[in-house]
Simulated scan of single mutants.
Amino acid sequence: MSAQIKNGTILLAEPFMLDPNFKRSTVLVVEHNPEGSLGFIMNRRVNMRVDALAKEFPEFDAPVYFGGPVGTDTVHYLHRKGDLLEGSDEVMEGIFWGGNYEKLRFLIDQKLITPYDIRFFVGYSGWSDSQLQEELEGGSWVTARMDPNYLFKSDPEKLWSQVMENKGDTFSVIASMREEPSYN
Score class of each variant (00 low, 15 high):
residue 22 F to G: 00
residue 96 F to G: 07
residue 1 M to A: 07
residue 79 H to Y: 07
residue 60 F to D: 06
residue 41 I to E: 01
residue 135 E to Q: 13
residue 158 K to T: 02
residue 45 R to L: 12
residue 30 V to W: 00
residue 69 P to T: 10
residue 55 K to P: 14
residue 155 D to Q: 08
residue 67 G to D: 04
residue 30 V to I: 08
residue 94 G to Q: 05
residue 6 K to Q: 15
residue 19 D to M: 03
residue 37 S to M: 14
residue 131 Q to E: 05
residue 53 L to K: 04
residue 150 Y to R: 02
residue 34 P to G: 02
residue 171 F to W: 12
residue 39 G to D: 04
residue 36 G to S: 15
residue 141 W to I: 06
residue 39 G to C: 02
residue 121 F to D: 05
residue 57 F to G: 08
residue 8 G to H: 10
residue 91 V to G: 09
residue 149 N to M: 09
residue 161 S to L: 03
residue 107 L to V: 09
residue 110 Q to W: 09
residue 18 L to Q: 14
residue 36 G to H: 06
residue 166 N to R: 10
residue 54 A to L: 15
residue 183 Y to V: 03
residue 136 L to P: 06
residue 148 P to M: 09
residue 147 D to E: 15
residue 72 T to Q: 09
residue 55 K to A: 14
residue 132 L to P: 07
residue 168 G to T: 12
residue 162 Q to Y: 01
residue 99 G to H: 10
residue 157 E to Y: 10
residue 68 G to R: 15
residue 32 H to N: 06
residue 96 F to K: 03
residue 61 D to H: 13
residue 161 S to K: 14
residue 143 T to K: 13
residue 49 R to F: 13
residue 83 D to H: 10
residue 150 Y to C: 06
residue 25 S to E: 05
residue 53 L to S: 07
residue 105 R to C: 15
residue 181 P to V: 14
residue 154 S to L: 04
residue 106 F to D: 13
residue 51 D to F: 13
residue 101 Y to V: 02
residue 114 T to A: 09
residue 180 E to T: 14
residue 151 L to R: 05
residue 12 L to V: 04
residue 10 I to A: 04
residue 42 M to G: 01
residue 154 S to P: 05
residue 79 H to A: 14
residue 56 E to K: 15
residue 158 K to P: 00
residue 38 L to N: 02
residue 80 R to L: 13
residue 41 I to K: 00
residue 61 D to M: 13
residue 173 V to K: 00
residue 170 T to N: 01
residue 142 V to W: 06
residue 3 A to S: 10
residue 116 Y to N: 05
residue 42 M to C: 08
residue 144 A to C: 00
residue 129 D to H: 08
residue 91 V to C: 01
residue 144 A to H: 05
residue 104 L to A: 06
residue 37 S to N: 08
residue 181 P to W: 15
residue 48 M to C: 09
residue 53 L to C: 07
residue 182 S to T: 14
residue 21 N to G: 00
residue 95 I to R: 13
residue 26 T to L: 14
residue 142 V to L: 11
residue 98 G to R: 03
residue 50 V to A: 10
residue 156 P to W: 12
residue 107 L to T: 11
residue 8 G to D: 03
residue 61 D to F: 13
residue 13 A to P: 14
residue 40 F to T: 01
residue 184 N to K: 08
residue 133 Q to C: 01
residue 136 L to H: 10
residue 159 L to F: 02
residue 70 V to R: 01
residue 89 D to A: 13
residue 81 K to N: 12
residue 143 T to M: 06
residue 1 M to F: 06
residue 38 L to I: 12
residue 128 S to E: 01
residue 173 V to I: 03
residue 102 E to G: 07
residue 98 G to A: 01
residue 96 F to E: 10
residue 72 T to R: 08
residue 66 F to G: 00
residue 22 F to S: 00
residue 30 V to L: 06
residue 86 E to F: 01
residue 95 I to F: 00
residue 154 S to G: 01
